[in-house]
Design a protein around this nucleic acid. Sequence first.
DNA 1: GTCTATATGAAGATAGAC
DNA 2: GTCTATCTTCATATAGAC
Lengths: 214, 214
Amino acid sequence: MSPECAKRPAILERETLILSAARRVFLELGFVSATMDAIADMAGVSKQTVYNHFGSKEELFASMVRSGCKEILTVLQMGADRGDPEQTLRSMGRRFLEMALQPEKLALRRVLLGEIAQFPELGQIYYRSGPAFLRGQLAEYLEKQDRNGFLVVADPQLMADQFVGMLSVCLMKAELGIKPEMNPDERERYIDHAVGLVMSVTRPGTATLPGKPG
Amino acid sequence: MSPECAKRPAILERETLILSAARRVFLELGFVSATMDAIADMAGVSKQTVYNHFGSKEELFASMVRSGCKEILTVLQMGADRGDPEQTLRSMGRRFLEMALQPEKLALRRVLLGEIAQFPELGQIYYRSGPAFLRGQLAEYLEKQDRNGFLVVADPQLMADQFVGMLSVCLMKAELGIKPEMNPDERERYIDHAVGLVMSVTRPGTATLPGKPG
DNA sequence: GTCTATATGAAGATAGAC
DNA sequence: GTCTATCTTCATATAGAC
């Protein structure tokens, strides 16, 4: 143990503390309604300390979003290929929905969308850390399967995009707070159906989509 | 002409005026940053007049959202069935994207999502006027085609949902402000691909999806 | 119903001591 | 670096005359 540990939280710990408080307050109230006072109180530090570390409300918000996106990336990055294409798709889809449907992630999306006009770059950051990342993994996988002759995929990018889209319907409803909420069984039906759709048009010998004539 | 027309705008006109000003200000700034002063100025009336007509900022916001949703419904309600299933799907999809991708509609979605926590019922209103309405029309259409033997659709609701989902990917990107923006040609590719996917799994004689054994 | 003027309260940011 | 106390600004909502 280094000496400063005994005295008070180290700087990094303190910033983490403030970020985590900022997350709770911003996600509950939105950018404008959230106050620096509330964030400082929740972190157990003075307002001035918050300003010392993050400069302004805007910078604090951006830092909070970036840290949330980093978390998403970390979770989605776990290996995906399971050999069997059908199982691989299913597993990717399940992981995506589980992640994105967490109340905290839904709240992050909402508050982020509300502030897109003021923080345009945060939209890109979120997109890359979530939907685009999954889409990239998936497109890469589909392309590999196509090269190896296990699947027939004329446009892997587009197919991956629309696979994500078919699942994102669940997200949209959750985001809008549509009742009744979708239960896990229903989510599974959406995953099954999406996987089934993709599988039936990519099965070798049944090239029915444009761009890849039999 | 009735006498009061000559003097000043009628009450209904005045409310329309305020609503339209509210829309512009709310959509540009979001709920909290928008000020009653700005709305009153833009409408060319005094702030007190705004309060007389709409009671509070919250009620004004809700009224603005409701009027925006009513517009969407009006546009999407135009007849859809064109006989040929493929053409019908394409036309429905095109109409949906054209509507939803309008900058004003994107802004409405964004600001609405940002305020879902404070106005839960507005999420339902929006959903019913947009995605759910299209989904309903589409599901009904698919079911009819299934009954008549032109298509094989085991679960029309789910299929309709995921058709909307495949198109909504375009929406998601636009909402997040992802650059470069999608051009009309690219949108058309998404529509084509989604229609192609649905058509290939619903063509009679190739029942490859679960729930509808041949 | 409409206007001008104002009271009230709150939030972002800073000053100055330790 | 951290804290307490304060400054400045601004938006909601109301009061009172026409």
